[in-house]
């Protein structure tokens, strides 16, 4: 690991104030510490967010579940409110990494990192969540659909801090993760959510960034059945291909997992 300066502010405002130059925010550290350890990532200043109470916590307001950016995956997975309102989200959080990762990893850290095979991005797109972020004095709300811009890239500005995420409560939803056998990240992960007559289907792991499978959404809008999802032949164009699965295989698995997600959503 390269040397850096360490700061641990106790308020979000102080954290944002500390984030100058090439400073990085340290959330749960489950990706960032690894990258720094392997000397793949270097920063002059590391701003530890773990002491900031206002970034933690889960609440339900109207038809939204609001989760603080520094809320750990295991807290989401075990939350009675989340299990009640959006069981698919608790289920997704309970399947990220392993139990040790879940005890440290955070929602904000995961989506800011924008790993193409991470689970949370599928929930952001699948539920059409809204991300609250602040930089300087400005706070803004970013739509889930516009948040992820590419491989490990988001619309966040330098020094911009995610404070919380609002997840709309769907009629029903489910996430199915098909794990890459070594890393246990999603080789293909599909989040399906139904809001009235609207169906959202988000796919992680399969491309350079999470995306909505619009052709499956169209099919499911007509008929919300496992068969309708599985019958859609997804194009392999733009799909990732590696030793764990060719583009063609990933494309095929998107349909299969979408079908299974619908089956699970229907209970």
């Amino acid at each position: 690991m390269y040397a850096f300066e360490y700061q641990n502010p106790s308020t979000a405002a102080a954290a944002i104030g500390s984030a100058k130059g090439d400073a990085r925010f340290l959330a749960g550290g489950q990706s960032l510490v690894q990258a720094m350890k392997l000397r793949l990532s270097q920063t002059g200043t590391l701003v530890d967010l773990s002491g900031i109470a206002e970034l933690k916590g889960i609440s339900v307001a109207g038809s939204n579940v609001i989760i603080g950016a520094m809320t750990r995956h295991s807290e989401v997975a075990r939350s009675a409110e989340v299990k009640q309102a959006i069981p698919a989200l608790a289920d997704l959080a309970g399947g990220i990494g392993d139990q040790m990762v879940r005890n440290q990893g955070t929602l904000g850290g995961s989506i800011a990192n924008a790993d193409p095979a991470a689970c949370y991005p599928a929930a952001i797109l699948g539920l059409g969540a809204t991300i609250k972020a602040s930089v300087g004095q400005k706070e803004r709300a970013i739509t889930g659909d516009s948040f992820f811009t590419g491989l490990f890239e988001t619309t966040l500005a330098p020094g911009e801090l995610i404070t919380s995420v609002e997840f709309p409560v769907p009629d029903c939803a489910a996430y199915v993760k098909f794990k890459q056998p070594a890393s246990r990240f999603a080789l293909v992960g599909v989040f399906v959510a139904k809001f009235g007559s609207t169906v959202r289907v988000a796919v992680t792991g399969a491309k350079s960034s999470v995306f909505r499978a619009t052709d499956i959404e169209a099919a499911l809008s007509k008929s919300f059945t496992p068969e309708a999802a599985a019958a859609v032949k997804v194009s392999a164009n733009g799909m990732n291909g590696d030793m764990h699965g060719s583009a063609e295989y990933r494309a095929a698995m998107v349909s299969v997992m979408a079908g299974r997600a619908v089956a699970r959503a229907l209970g």
């Binding site: 360490y6 340290l26 550290g29 510490v33 530890d48 392993d98 139990q99 040790m100 990762v101 005890n103």
Partner: peptide, 27 residues
């Protein structure tokens, strides 16, 4: 390991299991 996957460094931090290779001492 150096990619936080083997779990040999698992300890309990405030009563929860975490990987001691995946966090800084200052944390």
């Amino acid at each position: 390991c150096d990619t936080a996957q083997c779990g040999a460094c698992t300890i309990h931090l405030n009563g929860r299991a975490v990987k001691a290779c995946s966090m800084l001492a200052v944390q």
